[in-house]
């Protein structure tokens, strides 16, 4: 059984005249696999990531999504997280007044509680954060500050990966994690992501550019356009796209 099984997913922006964005998208992701989703602006890539995470601004009109065979669309946002879905945001929000440490701990313990596991003790938690943060170049000062408050674009992305490393999700959805990163930051973030690759964990990497895929090498590449996956292939497909652009797919769909 696939870890994630998206079948004929149709979704529109919530509201009476909401625009349809996903128009019959299907995708199967098995544990251990890394799937890259590429495509032009407006093809519905970010919408897909939000729908998987449970954002309430969209309405699913048809199709199914299951995680480990369970209906993902029926689950609350926090329930999805506890079941192992993690969305690394394209634009992580700033949460003034909630210290990063407080937030990390509340997240981890809420997930553990929902799964019927014991809360992490303070010393264990501190050790865990210290260890993971060091690898991502996140210092104590950043951890004391409000979540993402005053962080640079690169620091925010690193903070997302830190959360991912601490929460150890089953399915990581990285929404344009490369946007706003310089080459050095891209390397740190990619190394952080690669360190989390495991036979039990799957990843969906959403990006415009092939560049990120030099660092995070995918098993599969999918081209998305107008709310559907229009082509799938191996990692070489990304190179082809880089050379030829998305023009041919955009014409097809007309």
């Amino acid at each position: 059984m696939a870890l994630l099984d998206i079948d004929n997913l149709h979704a529109k922006i919530d509201g009476e005249h909401g625009k349809e964005i996903l128009k019959g998208l299907s995708l199967k992701v098995n544990p251990g696999e890394v799937h890259a989703i590429m495509g032009p602006n407006g093809s519905g890539k970010s919408t897909l990531s939000y729908i998987l995470a449970g954002k309430e601004d969209y309405e699913v009109t048809d199709g199914t999504v299951t995680l480990d065979g369970e209906d993902l669309l029926e689950m609350e946002i926090d329930e999805r997280a506890a079941k192992g879905v993690f969305l690394a945001f394209q634009y992580p929000v700033e949460v003034p007044g909630v210290a990063t440490m407080t937030f990390l701990r509340a997240s981890l313990n809420a997930q553990r509680k929902k799964r019927g596991e014991a809360e992490v003790s303070t010393p264990d938690f501190l050790r865990l954060v210290k260890d993971k943060a060091a690898h991502l170049g996140i210092n104590q000062d950043m951890l004391r500050r409000g979540v993402n408050v005053g962080f640079s674009g690169g620091e925010k992305k690193r903070a997302e990966i830190l959360q991912m490393a601490i929460l150890e999700p089953k399915l990581c959805v990285l929404d344009e994690t490369d946007s706003g990163l310089d080459i050095d930051a891209l390397k740190v973030v990619s190394e952080g992501v690669n360190a989390l690759r495991s036979p039990d964990r799957a990843m969906i990497v959403i990006t415009h550019y092939q560049r990120l895929l030099n660092h995070i090498v995918p098993d599969f590449v999918h081209v998305m356009n107008k709310g559907r996956i229009v082509r799938s292939g191996g990692k070489e497909l990304a190179l082809e796209l880089e050379a030829n652009g998305y023009a041919e797919y955009q014409q097809d769909a007309a």
Binding site: I77, D78, R80, V98, F103, S107, A110, Q111
Partner: peptide, 21 residues
Amino acid sequence: FYLRARGIPKKEAQSLLVQAF
């Protein structure tokens, strides 16, 4: 949404944000 996407239940997420406010 951000807090809930990390597994924090709605009520608790609201409380964290009110406390911060």
